[in-house]
Amino acid sequence: MSNTVTTREEMNLITAINSGLRQEMARDPAVIMYGYDIGPIGGVFRVTEGLYDEFGPQRVIDTPLSENGVLGTAVGMAVRGLRPVVEMQFMGFFYNSFGQFVCSVANMYERTGGLCAVPMTIRMTFGGGIKPLLFHSESTETFLAHTPAVRVVCPSSPYQAKGMMAASIRSDDPVVFLEHTKQYRARREPVPTEEYLLSLDKAEIIKPGKDVTVIAWGGMVEQAQLALKNVDADVELIDLRSLAPLDVETILTSVKKTGRCVVVHEARRTLGPGAEISALVHENLLEWLLAPVQRVTAFDVNFPDNQTEDFYLPDAQRIQYGIEKVMNYRY
């Protein structure tokens, strides 16, 4: 970043991502927006608003309604020099393109011995809390992060989102960019109007602390912040930001210091990302641990109906319970 005075504007997650997309489209003619309901409507959440007017139908391409068609053709585009930014309207619809994701997006680079990179950004809304219809609240990051050779990032704040969007688009790797629907308009903060890049593989320590490490991402960061206020412990809060690759160094350094770890996710528990983080901590830091790693998660059920979803999703209260558990643990 230059050291000239930065101008900032109040942005929410939507306008920050939009700002990042616009900036990258202006900077690099190879960048295109690709998916359905992204053109004149500007996305059902308005993330691509105004881009069609500014860059025209050759760069903001409304496609037929096929996730598999979108992702498959985007692979071909990426191979031929474009940098498609694919929009998946909801994570639940992305499943329709899962074969392309695992067998092509994630595989082409290696299969061609490094000759064909697949530089694309797959934007995807995810997460619950807005009480929509079935399959509009998915949080199955595991399916993504379990796939080798793709990056999976998840900014939780407008500032992170803009800088990480720019970095995702410039990355020569395929990047899945997770956008939490409930966070879209949850808060605003000053975001630089100029361009800046944020790392795609570094976790961020949101608040340092010495008693317990709490790890969260996406919508759970906000809930964790709320929980901190109610616990009698000095919490170190880590916003993971990247689910693949994991910033294991930051995690282990923190837990080595605190001796306690709580992983929070909206994803279901069994084989959720918390399982991996917990295993890593136990494998590497067993003798430093003052308590077993506690997972604070949703339950192992299909995302429930509107009337019961609040009892499914982890919230500040459940996180507080998790922190209290590890704080009071005695061997």
Binding site: R269, V301, N302, D305, T308, F311
Partner: peptide
Amino acid sequence: PRSTPETMFEHHLQGEPSWAERVQ
């Protein structure tokens, strides 16, 4: 009536609930 929270566990697998289900 409003659905009770426990209904979210229903109709997943048939037969005896697993350890994970009982715990959760």
